[in-house]
Design a protein around this nucleic acid. Structure first.
Lengths: 345, 345
DNA sequence: TTGTACGCGTTATCAA
DNA sequence: TTGATAACGCGTACAA
């Protein structure tokens, strides 16, 4: 049963022509250079024989592996599965295959992974682990390899990217809270070495300013996760008296909810909360989380499309980055502020 | 900046030896066949020159691609990210890289993907999409390619696998409910063309029998998802009067909760619910879901290890499958049955 | 339109 | 212990 792979040579012999002719006939790009009849005959024979071609030989010859390196922080972070799924589906349309790896947000691991993928001769990269300053990515870009950044970008690096309008996202969140009547609003900011954390904090500051409310109640986290969110929100509540919190993302928001529970705070009656991303199953938690929706799947799909266009020959500097629009998703974690705010000091 | 890859030839010239010698020196397996001094000299020079090697050329020559095909139903199903992460980490230890693809539980897509991966000369497969009868997988196995099944298996196919003890999992669920005093227990079974759905239903029947309770309140779904769970649980409640439901997995349990909400049923006061897998963030929903915990990450890690041992030369028939032990995780969706059960007929 | 010849970068086999 | 040589399977100038 275990036939060894059929080779071009064998097809050629069976068809009574030279291997080169078979190669030309099988490649759509060069098929025109071969007699129509013989071409279709070869096509038929190769199909009969179950010819598949050897991707290694082809890759060695063309130095194109038909693979793409996909780098994300951590697949078990619920933000990424839809993103990766979008990338997968996008790459699949052109016969490309992703080489997926998790960096756990470690710069050295990112470097290792990037180099390992480069050594495997991937045709390009889709990177979701970018930091504001990221030498590893810069060096990959400097080598001239096709790169698309997704979700996060590198400051000052001119590379195509697909991102959420992070500033706008937070502004929408603040606007929503202000509309409800809040004026003491806190922010749990994400890591400031990522553009998402950075831009969202900037958005918070700008929105507060535009509403004329002072915005000192800010705590930063070092990771976008629940634990960090729990700790930071605890510190925030220790130091400030706020009626609402804008979390830099949903995971951090989940941490805030944990803090609320610890302190017997009812959300949204005592305090309102809003997150960013609208990760899966947030509508099922208690309380269902109001959040800013991100089209994560589309983000991945777009990233794949951009990269494919670059691999296809388009100058990297000529492809324009895409910025996805955030969308307010109302649920139950935000409400009007409680009647009276008790000051701590 | 964009140096073209350093080749074996170039290192050889720089070291004043033949390329073959460099090859031998660089490969740990053959290093003993080369003079110790020259070996270390070559090693040093190659490091200096930043020699990386060309995986395509190597693969062409050795017909080993250092890649593994990983097939799952759908990455956005929360069960899979930890599984894939385990696989990733397991493969990474030996320098292998996963080629990930989603089948969406479509048999034809599974076939296409499997063939496409085979054509890419992956060194083996880790498959999480198996159906009870699965010709595509059988033919891959028949071709002699290394395969490890994970989570689900193919009936009658002698292939190493890593699975949960599905029957036991459901038995534990039923036992828990019986301990609480329930005697009218329903089951939302998963798809019966997957061993998980099948075995879990069998476990349900067996457990009921052992407790001497009749177990006719069973509804089957065609997919392991929330929507199907919602529909099936609706039908179950229309036809039977039960005080508790065992869902074949957590997603289905989520669907049950949706039905409860629709009908104004309080869980667990009016009806108890228990799921399987303990997917992420189930402790945050309302009510926190009691479930049977699965070590999903370990499952993936183990699968990778088994596959690597086969690729490493171990006879597939000689590696023993692993069966993971389920674990009852108590939360808030199960309680004693309501005082009086109103019969419908 | 088709065939020839070579090379992509390695590794394996043989001689030396 | 090392060097020479072939071969893995394919694509592509170039010649015919």
């Amino acid at each position: 049963m275990a036939d060894r792979a059929v080779t071009l040579q064998q097809v050629a012999e069976a068809a009574g022509v030279h291997a080169a002719t078979v190669s030309r006939a099988l490649n759509p790009e060069t098929r025109s250079k071969v007699n129509g009849e013989t071409a279709s005959r070869i096509l038929e024979i190769s199909k009969e024989m179950g010819y598949r071609g050897n991707p290694m030989a082809r890759a060695l010859r063309t130095s194109r592996s038909m693979t793409v390196g996909v780098l994300i922080p951590d697949l078990t972070n619920p933000f990424y599965p839809p993103l990766v799924r979008g990338i997968d589906d996008g790459l699949d349309t052109m016969g490309y295959v992703p080489l997926l790896a998790n960096s756990d947000d470690s710069p050295i691991r990112e470097l290792t992974l990037l180099e390992s993928m480069r050594d495997r001769h991937v045709d390009g990269f889709i990177i979701a682990t970018a930091r504001v300053s990221d030498p590893a990515i810069q060096s990959i870009v400097a080598e001239g390899l096709p790169v698309v950044l997704v979700s996060r970008t590198v400051k000052g690096l001119k590379v195509p990217s697909v991102t959420l309008d992070d500033e706008l996202a937070i502004e929408m969140a603040v606007n929503h809270l202000v509309d409800l009547g809040h004026s003491s609003i806190g922010h749990i900011a994400g890591p400031q070495d990522s553009t998402t954390g950075l831009m969202r904090k900037a958005g918070f500051l700008r929105a507060c300013r535009s509403h004329g409310i002072k915005s000192t109640a800010i705590m930063e986290t070092t990771r976008f996760n629940e634990e960090q969110g729990r700790i930071a929100s605890g510190r925030l509540l220790d130091q400030y008296s706020v009626t609402a919190i804008v979390a830099s993302n949903d995971l951090i928001a989940l941490g805030c909810l944990a803090t609320f529970a610890e302190r017997g705070l009812n959300c949204p009656k005592d305090i309102s909360l809003i997150g960013v991303n609208d990760m899966a199953y947030l509508d099922r938690i208690a309380p269902p989380l109001t959040t800013i929706h991100t089209e994560t799947y589309q983000m991945g799909l777009n990233a794949a499309q951009l990269l494919l266009s670059i691999i296809g020959g388009k100058k990297s500097s000529a492809v324009e980055s895409r910025v996805l629009q955030p969308q307010l998703t109302l649920r139950k974690s935000t409400d009007v502020p409680p009647p009276r705010v008790k000051k701590r000091k």
